[in-house]
């Protein structure tokens, strides 16, 4: 299963090593600890804000998902706080870049 082809459809998949039982990030066919093949599953689509800043009127933040994966994305509305929980509302690939749009929980 190709991570990017699913992301294009708006699905955020996570690669997990069958052997180590650990999340492999960035997404890869092989575990970065043991090189065994990974399995793919849907993300919980939830994370927590590690840090954030603002450009013009738009907040962008660094979010940790499932205590492992960190990505940067947009906050759709509201004022974020560090440690606050967020939901990934939308994700995909636009102009060759991944994008993640989160809402505050």
């Amino acid at each position: 299963m190709n991570f990017e082809s699913e992301l294009k459809k708006g699905n955020f998949l996570i690669s997990e090593c069958v052997h180590c039982k650990k999340i492999v990030w960035p997404p890869s066919e092989f575990c970065n600890q043991c090189f065994k093949e990974v399995s793919w599953r849907k993300s919980l689509y939830e994370g927590k804000i590690i840090e954030f800043s603002k450009q013009n009127n738009n907040y962008f933040c660094l979010v940790e998902i499932e205590n492992t994966i960190k990505v940067m994305g947009k906050i759709s509305s509201g004022i974020p706080n560090v440690g606050q929980h967020v939901k990934i509302e939308r994700c995909g690939i636009k102009d060759d870049n991944y994008y993640f749009e989160m809402s505050l929980i």
């Binding site: 990030w25 960035p26 840090e51 954030f52 800043s53 450009q55 962008f60 660094l62 994966i69 960190k70 990505v71 940067m72 994305g73 947009k74 636009k94 870049n97 991944y98 994008y99 993640f100």
Partner: peptide, 17 residues
Amino acid sequence: NSRGEFKHPIFWASIFT
């Protein structure tokens, strides 16, 4: 790609700052 659409160095610099 984990930087999403925020790939320019000004964004990591903003988070560091």
